[in-house]
Write a protein that binds this DNA or RNA. Sequence first.
RNA 1: CGGGGUGUAGCGCAGCCCGGUAGCGCGCUUCGUUCGGGACGAAGAGGUCGGAGGUUCAAAUCCUCUCACCCCGACCA
Length: 479
Amino acid sequence: MPVVSKGVTKQSEDFSKWYTDVVRQAKLADYGPVKGTMVIRPYGYAIWENFQGILNQMFKDTGHVNAYFPMFIPEHFLQKEAEHVEGFAPEVAVVTHAGGKKLDEALVVRPTSETIIWNMYKKWISSYRDLPLLINQWANVVRWEMRTRLFLRTTEFLWQEGHTAHATAEEAQDETLKMLNVYKSFAEDYMAMPVITGQKSEAEKFAGAVSTYSIEAMMRDTKALQAGTSHNLGQNFAKAFEVTFQNKDNREELVYATSWGVSTRLVGGLIMSHGDDKGLILPPKVAPYQVVIIPIFRKDTRDLVMDKVDDLVVNLKQAEIRVHVDDDEKSSPGFKFNEWEMCGVPMRVEIGPKDIEKGHAVVVIRHSGAKHFIQLNELVQFLADQQDIVQDELFQRALDFRESNTHTVDNWDDFKETLETKGGFIKAYWNGSSEVEEKIKNETKATIRCIPFDQPEASGKCIYTGEPSSQQVIFAKAY
RNA sequence: CGGGGUGUAGCGCAGCCCGGUAGCGCGCUUCGUUCGGGACGAAGAGGUCGGAGGUUCAAAUCCUCUCACCCCGACCA
């Protein structure tokens, strides 16, 4: 029997399918004509714009300025840093022809901008007085990935990349961790997405970095998502691009560097942190619309209802609440309820003749389904109060979910058993060997997401070799 | 790159085995009735059947080649 699908695939049935269904049905994004490319549609882009607005302010508050560097990079730039070229070579797109002829030197389309930026920094930095240099750019980058998924991994994606230059190693390390914490605040306070901060293992770190730190979040299928990274690049790029400065003692020194970024992948993280079988659930602080009003009327009651709605809109806007009125007369209220639930608007207001008669409106909270009857004169205040309440509940719910899907194990059999039957994050000790990490990955598909800053007092023994170990790490299957 | 799948109306699909003037659902347009959890009726618009060759009186259907996309694995934010 042909089933006309209303709604989306259930999460419990097929999480991947659910994700794709939601992205498309909520009109966040669509596939582009070239394999792996994505069109970010207005509703999805509105979320990204909200991310940008908040992050941009956070960057400025921490002393950074924005700039823009070119997308085309001379091919030999990429080859200057050994690890860097090795890490990115397989996934760069290269332009060999332009202007109707073959180019003398091929141009790579930036997969990240360290090389072109450090090429420029060489020109700009000569004295300790030029430091620190704290620049961010909002840009697109291209990485030719084998397997792509909307928002999570696409051939071209949007991101921000901060690139800083410092006079000392300590300063660079401070900057690296400072920005990691900016990301943590953003994820938790705005996206309501709890994250674990920690250091990446040698195998997982950025190609060209001395050390990489990340924020790791758990999605609703209990898989891990690396949601942001911050790198201490040491003097690697300064060496490669010969960027030196004269210190106070008039001695020449190599500059210390950091870079840090988050991408449109965060939109995917947002979707998979909160969504349910009805569709998206957006935290108020990043939702394009925080309130949707659905007026309920017939021809003869239209003006009565719309008068109230118009008043309400004015007052909500005054209270700086992002509000949308769906007064489309072609679709029924029931249709709109489902539609806006799919789109994840945190709260919905229904106003019809019956409500007006009683002097109230109906408010339905998206994530809980809770229904409230609120007097019209208290409505704006109620909705304003709910913003924070909903925001907090979503964070708490996500945190509870992560905690209840995080398991600590201390022997290899339990490790495999837990991973297979329960999934989620697994805390276990590890001896620090890349070889062991590789073996575990091959045997279980689980990778070390990070070595959390938050470590237990006691030490333990390596989950794989049984050797004594002082570092507990988080294993998980990851996106 | 390995494995699997799909290309027919905007979307989802049937038709292909067994060749004979292209169909269904949703969506879209117009009009009317509806409107408090995915409304209904009537009338319409819309397709070089992914592309190129071939077989045939005749190809969406058979044959050959090709292209594209999706899903699952190895690499990655």
